[in-house]
């Protein structure tokens, strides 16, 4: 089975869509995968030329202003023409993520891709909407660092004393389980998506989120934004100004 993983983050580096594309490729062992980015117009033709040889295309998109980003709209318009003029027989699956906590806010983006399938003559396979995508991407960077530090401490302890203290094992287990818990919805939905792809089935759209209640998500996300602005050399109050 030939699978094309397309991710559409406009960012040159990082981006939640790229992170989820990388994570999902782990769910597709034994398939012939190719991962391509379409973060600018220059990438479009290269991606389109891969379409005819594919059985499945998995499209990872970010949600921008309640819908698909403008460069994705441009890509879809070109892709519709391409699919009508070439022999494209793939099924399209999609994973859309947004910065808000509710995965259901991605529903219009998934519906737009479904509408594209109808116009392009492509089979729609279904999709996943992920809420708190930015937070999950940041956690995907923070947790490996934390776990790496603990592993380093374990190694130092083992080589200096010959034993690894139980407290370090406990910390290691807590970090692993916390990451798994926060990502449990995403991992479960990705497993279902992977199963649907392998069985050539249509997946009913699934919606999931970072496993944090909304009343905690808002203050945590706000603190993250304030800290991010400090890294940019700005205090938050300077960012509250209005332009005339």
């Amino acid at each position: 089975m030939h699978v094309l993983i397309l991710h559409a983050s406009p960012k040159k580096k990082g981006g939640a869509s790229r992170f989820f594309a990388g994570l999902f490729s782990l769910f597709l062992p034994g398939t012939r995968k190719k991962t391509v980015s379409i973060n600018s117009r220059q990438d479009f033709q290269r991606a389109l030329e891969l379409f005819p040889g594919m059985d499945v295309v998995c499209f990872f998109v970010p949600l921008y202003v309640d819908g698909l980003p403008s460069h994705v709209m441009e890509f879809l318009s070109q892709a519709e023409k391409y699919c009508k003029n070439h022999s494209c027989r793939f099924r399209l699956y999609a994973v859309s993520n947004n910065g808000f906590v509710e995965g259901k806010q991605n529903r219009p983006a998934l519906h737009m891709l479904q509408a594209w399938c109808e116009r392009a003559g492509i089979t729609w396979g279904g999709g996943i909407g992920i809420g708190g995508g930015v937070m999950l991407r940041v956690l995907g960077t923070v947790y490996p660092i934390l776990i790496g530090i603990i592993l380093l401490q374990m190694a130092v302890s083992f080589f200096s004393t010959g034993i690894v203290p139980s407290g370090l094992w406990r910390s290691f287990a807590i970090q692993i389980f916390t990451w798994l818990f926060l990502n449990s919805g995403v991992l479960f939905c990705m497993a279902r998506l992977s199963s649907a792809i392998r069985r050539e089935q249509v997946l009913t759209d699934q919606f999931t989120r970072v496993m944090i209640p909304s009343f905690l998500f808002i203050p945590i996300a706000n603190i993250f934004m304030i800290l991010s602005s400090l890294f940019q050399g700005r205090f938050l109050f300077a960012l509250l100004k209005r332009e005339k």
């Binding site: 819908g67 709209m73 219009p108 737009m112 808002i218």
Partner: peptide, 27 residues
């Protein structure tokens, strides 16, 4: 109307206008 959304040139304008809101979240 493109696939149930805005055309790419209109959407680019809306995407570039997120500065009309603050980075902070609310309910």
């Amino acid at each position: 109307c493109c696939y149930g959304g805005y055309s790419s040139p209109v959407k680019a304008i809306l995407d570039r206008a997120i500065g009309s809101s603050l980075p902070l979240f609310t309910w």
